[in-house]
């Protein structure tokens, strides 16, 4: 079979998928690029060409810089916490004990639940009048009176990060647990004979086998955390006083709440660009990690 025919056949087989992708991703993207250079509103006419005004206005606005900081804080802290808790959970669930299989299955639950369900549960936990967190903390004498965790700018972002960690650490734990199965028993035994304690065993024996899979988890989670929308929308809608407003919430507000389609499109493209840069940087890191582990 000639290589020309093989190539043609491959493209033919891919064609239906390509057509669908162009229709649902390619075209809207091109349309968004066009829209971002106009002052179009959500309803009404197409708007007038305004050049790079939307971009310059957006990038120079304090709203954007503040939201970018909030998004970065949310992404960095929640992903870092998820990685640490996920790895610790995986190490625990890798030990031999009765009921391990049940615990492994239970651990997946928060991740398997729809985000809206998770977010609603956490709203109940944080509820300022009957929330379980307030009840627990007052009974432990850690706080004097019930607080509105999601209603105070000082605590809302932290409360969101905790909820996000709760939802997403099982994914990291699951990936780490799978990677732990690949750690050769002989190397662990060798490190015991060599006198390595738990920390050095983790550092020199386990971590090299975890690094690659964890890097993949880090890439996936950072990108997701950077474009987070659903959990925040359900729990705080970006408030109070915009203290939990992330880039995706800002895009939504620009485009749909304030009906500034052109401005919203330019912001959406800026977020897309940021996420793409992250993805490319991480992909390079993954390749490097995979290369050094080989």
């Amino acid at each position: 079979m000639s290589s020309t025919w093989m190539t043609t056949r491959a493209w033919l087989l891919m064609l239906p998928l390509l057509v669908v992708m162009v229709a649902v991703i390619g075209w809207p993207l091109v349309d968004t690029v066009g829209l971002s250079f106009t002052d179009a509103k959500l309803v009404g006419t197409g708007g007038n060409y305004v050049g790079f005004d939307n971009y310059t206005n957006m990038l120079s606005s304090s709203n954007f810089s503040r939201t970018l900081v909030t998004t970065t804080l949310f992404a960095v802290i929640s992903v870092a916490a998820e990685m640490v808790i996920g790895v610790l959970a995986a190490l625990l669930l890798n030990q031999q004990f009765h009921g391990r299989a049940i615990l492994r299955a239970l651990m997946i639950l928060p991740w398997a639940l729809p985000t809206v369900v998770n977010a609603t549960l956490w709203r109940l936990i944080y509820n300022p009048e009957y929330g379980a967190l307030n009840a627990a903390l007052t009974q432990l004498n850690l706080i004097d009176a019930y607080r509105s965790w999601l209603g105070e700018p000082g605590t809302a972002l932290v409360a969101l990060i905790v909820a996000d960690c709760w939802k997403n650490f099982p994914l990291v734990a699951l990936i780490a647990l799978a990677a732990l199965q690949a750690v050769p028993r002989d190397i662990t035994a060798a490190s015991l004979v060599d006198g390595a304690g738990p920390f050095n065993r983790f550092r020199f024996v386990i971590l090299p086998y975890l690094a690659g899979p964890l890097m993949v988890a880090l890439v996936l989670r950072t990108i997701e955390a950077f474009k987070v929308f659903d959990i925040i929308w359900v729990m705080t809608r970006g408030g109070p006083a915009n203290s939990t407003r992330t880039l995706s919430i800002l895009v939504y507000q620009e485009a749909f709440s304030f009906q500034r389609a052109g401005s919203g499109a330019s912001l959406a493209l800026i977020v897309t660009l940021l996420v793409t840069v992250l993805a490319v940087a991480y992909a390079a890191l993954v390749r490097k990690t995979a290369g050094s582990a080989a």
């Binding site: 050769p184 190397i187 035994a189 490190s191 020199f204 090299p208 582990a293």
Partner: peptide, 15 residues
């Protein structure tokens, strides 16, 4: 006060 050599060599891959 023992040392052991394994069938799979059991070397630390990153060292």
């Amino acid at each position: 006060d023992i040392a052991m050599v394994f069938q799979s060599y059991a070397l630390y891959p990153n060292l």
